[in-house]
Amino acid sequence: MLWTMTKKSPANTPSTPVATPVPASDPAAGEKLSKVQLIEQVAQRTSLSKQDASRAVDAALSAIAEALKGGKTVGLPGLGTLDVRATAARNGVRPGTAEKIQIPAGKKVGFKVATDLKKAL
């Protein structure tokens, strides 16, 4: 079960967070498909054993990661496209201390959703 933090009313202890359950069926709950669940679904849909499906999923994820590390774009038909994007150097503020810092340029992985999937959402 997922939990969210809410504040009590001012009549009660102010700013004391109280955990309240969020139903799992709530679309805003942010359900996540775990790797184990993904492997189970691959095994069911392909008639592979869970061990073989696990190796297949691991191999696919490894191939995607290696391609991205090599600076390549990875197209996943029906899902979208992963690519490496450069980020510019910028000024930032350190949380908690309000100290101004310089954030160096870097790289990040970007994802563009496929048009068909975007329409289906």
Rank of each mutant, 00 (worst) to 15 (best):
P14N: 06
R55L: 07
K32E: 08
G106A: 06
D58Y: 03
V113I: 13
L33W: 02
A86W: 02
N12E: 12
I64W: 02
T115C: 00
W3I: 14
R85W: 00
V42R: 11
K32I: 12
V84H: 02
A120T: 11
V57T: 06
L82W: 04
S9I: 13
A59M: 01
G80N: 02
S49T: 15
Q44H: 05
D26F: 02
K112D: 02
P104A: 14
K112M: 07
A98F: 05
D52A: 14
W3K: 15
L61E: 10
A53C: 09
A105M: 10
I64M: 06
A53G: 02
A114F: 03
R45W: 03
D52I: 04
K100V: 12
T20S: 11
K8E: 08
N91W: 06
S15R: 15
M5C: 09
A65W: 01
V36F: 01
K108I: 08
L48W: 01
L38C: 08
L79K: 06
A59N: 04
A63N: 09
P17W: 01
P23Q: 10
G110Q: 03
P27I: 10
V74S: 00
T81P: 00
T13I: 00
T87D: 04
A67G: 08
L61W: 00
T4C: 06
S25N: 15
D58L: 01
M1H: 00
L82T: 14
V18I: 14
T16N: 05
A98P: 11
L68Q: 07
L121I: 15
Q41R: 15
P77F: 04
I101H: 02
Q102I: 09
A120G: 10
K32M: 03
V74Q: 01
G92V: 11
A28R: 14
A65G: 05
G75F: 01
S47L: 07
K118D: 06
K118L: 07
A60H: 04
G30F: 05
A24M: 09
L79Y: 03
P21R: 13
G96F: 03
P23W: 00
T87H: 03
E31Y: 01
L2M: 10
E99Q: 15
L121N: 14
R94M: 12
N12F: 03
N12T: 14
F111H: 01
E99W: 03
A120E: 10
Q37I: 03
A11Y: 01
T13M: 06
E66T: 15
G80L: 04
L38M: 10
A53F: 04
G75R: 06
K112V: 13
L38A: 04
P27R: 10
K69Y: 00
T6V: 15
A105R: 04
K100C: 08
L48T: 11
R45D: 02
D83T: 11
M1T: 11
A88F: 02
A60L: 08
G70N: 10
K112G: 07
Q41S: 13
A56I: 04
T4K: 15
T46V: 07
G106E: 05
E99I: 12
P10Y: 04
D58S: 11
Q41M: 12
P21H: 05
